[in-house]
């Protein structure tokens, strides 16, 4: 989707503004993740990742991001962190694990980074 003219966003390095454009791009991915609120859907995904992603109509880019557990790529493909957090739960990743994965740090290094800002 092209969104002419309403580009009021300022550039914030390392930050993707989850707006209508991203939300539309990521709709299928976020919908799948939203449905992970229910245990039966988490089990469905775990039993057949590929089939489950196809059922929700994920794009090739979204599927590739999930296959490679690449959080930054999921965001690039329109994923919203609140919905993705439910997927991270299935992968047994903590919020600090997810932070480390996105910033090229180990979980411990990421925790130290947080602490350093005290």
């Amino acid at each position: 989707m092209d969104q002419p003219g309403y580009d009021y966003h300022i550039d914030i390095p390392g930050t993707t503004i989850f707006d209508g454009k991203q939300a539309m791009k990521g709709y299928a991915l976020n919908k799948m993740c939203y449905d992970f609120n229910r245990a039966e859907n988490r089990e469905g995904f775990k039993a057949d990742e590929e089939g489950w992603m196809t059922k929700y109509g994920l794009t090739e880019g979204q599927k590739a991001a999930i296959r490679s557990r690449n959080i930054l790529q999921m965001i690039e493909e329109g994923g919203n962190i609140y919905y993705l957090a439910k997927l991270a739960g299935i992968f047994k990743l903590s919020v600090q694990d997810v932070g480390g994965l996105q910033t090229g740090r180990t979980t411990e290094e990421f925790q130290d980074f947080l602490q350093s800002q005290a």
Partner: peptide, 13 residues
């Protein structure tokens, strides 16, 4: 706080 992106972990005291 920021959970997502390369800026994850950002805090601004």
């Amino acid at each position: 706080h920021q959970l997502d992106g390369e800026r994850a972990g950002f805090i601004n005291k």
